[in-house]
């Protein structure tokens, strides 16, 4: 059937040139702005390059320096790992909880779904990050509210202990996009399964564990991979909340922020290229790892009967 479809749809094979004509903007972009730069940055990562003089080959020196001799780099890695490990699960739990809350026959569902999704669109803006900065500042709203409750944290933005949490909170606030995806997934679960669970006398928790979670696991996996990859590349929130410096005391020195500092304020572009490649490798490795573990917990309904 699909073979037939392919054949009927693509009978312009006698004039293949036309296809490349349609494809030419994309191919130009792929060559000049993707493949070329990828190779170039790989080369630059083995050089000393300041944008204005010719790159000088220094072998593995950038990588060696990063891994063995740059404590701020290791701090940046640690901050980013903490951020990913905190923000991704919290965001997904919030998304799933709200999706389950909304998954109910009601005419208001569409309204709630849109409204809960709104922060996902706004949250990437510098404007919202600035609001976060003011809300969590010393004597700001959060500080004051906590103080009246007898908890004196002294403002989160200026505190090395809490500054990262401000950015985590900003990320979790944007749970709307994965929530919408979860909700679409929940609607796909056949009602018979819930009926059967009810007949068997399963309670809420048992139903959740034995029906909802396994049936939803492909969607959970999808969101987990996507959100993890995104979280590793977070930049705007950290830049705005820390004023571009990653402080206080490097507590919000995100990987991408440090890369930006090295590349575009210190113009050590070879060094920054090495950082970029390590990031790509790390993200690829973690994605591969997630796919590995997927075999153990992701359940595809279609596979079961085989």
């Amino acid at each position: 059937m699909t073979a037939l479809r392919q054949r009927t749809r693509t009978r312009y094979g006698d004039r293949p040139g036309i296809a490349y004509l349609f494809l030419s903007p994309w191919m130009a972009g792929a060559l000049l702005l993707t493949v070329g730069p990828m190779l170039a940055s790989l080369y630059l990562s083995f050089t000393n390059y300041d944008l204005f003089t010719t790159p000088r080959w220094i072998g593995l020196a950038n990588y060696r320096r990063l891994l063995l001799d740059d404590p701020r780099f290791l701090t940046a890695v640690w901050v980013t790992v903490k951020y990913v490990a905190l923000s991704t699960p919290l965001k997904l739990v919030a998304a799933l909880a709200v999706a389950m809350l909304l998954n109910r026959a009601s005419r208001a569902q569409g309204f709630y779904r849109s409204a809960f999704y709104a922060p996902s669109l706004l949250g990437a803006s510098v404007a919202v990050a600035l609001v976060w900065r003011v809300i969590f500042d010393t004597n700001g709203i959060v500080d004051q509210s906590l103080s009246t409750l007898g908890i004196h944290t002294g403002g989160w933005v200026a505190s090395p202990r809490y500054a990262l949490l401000v950015i985590v909170a900003l990320a979790v606030w944007q749970f709307g996009a994965p929530m919408v995806i979860f909700l679409a997934g929940l609607k796909q679960i056949p009602a018979e399964l819930y009926d059967a669970a009810a007949v068997d006398g399963a309670g809420w928790w048992r139903t959740f564990r034995s029906v909802t979670l396994p049936m939803l696991s492909p969607v959970i996996f999808f969101n987990l991979v996507l959100e993890t990859i995104h979280a590793f590349q977070a930049f705007t929130g950290a830049f705005v909340v820390s004023g571009g410096r990653g402080g206080p005391t490097d507590s919000t020195l995100f990987y991408t922020l440090y890369l930006y500092q090295k590349g575009f304020t210190e113009y050590r572009m070879g060094y920054a290229s090495a950082m970029a490649w390590l990031l790509v490798i790390a993200i690829a490795a973690i994605t591969a790892l997630l796919f590995r573990t997927a075999r153990m917990w992701v359940f595809y309904a279609g596979e079961d009967g085989r």
Binding site: S273, A276, W277
Partner: peptide, 16 residues
């Protein structure tokens, strides 16, 4: 290329 972090392209693109 969908999932490729832009950071790996940023510096050469800037140079161009």
């Amino acid at each position: 290329t969908i999932m490729l972090p832009i950071h790996v392209l940023l510096i050469p693109q800037y140079t161009i």
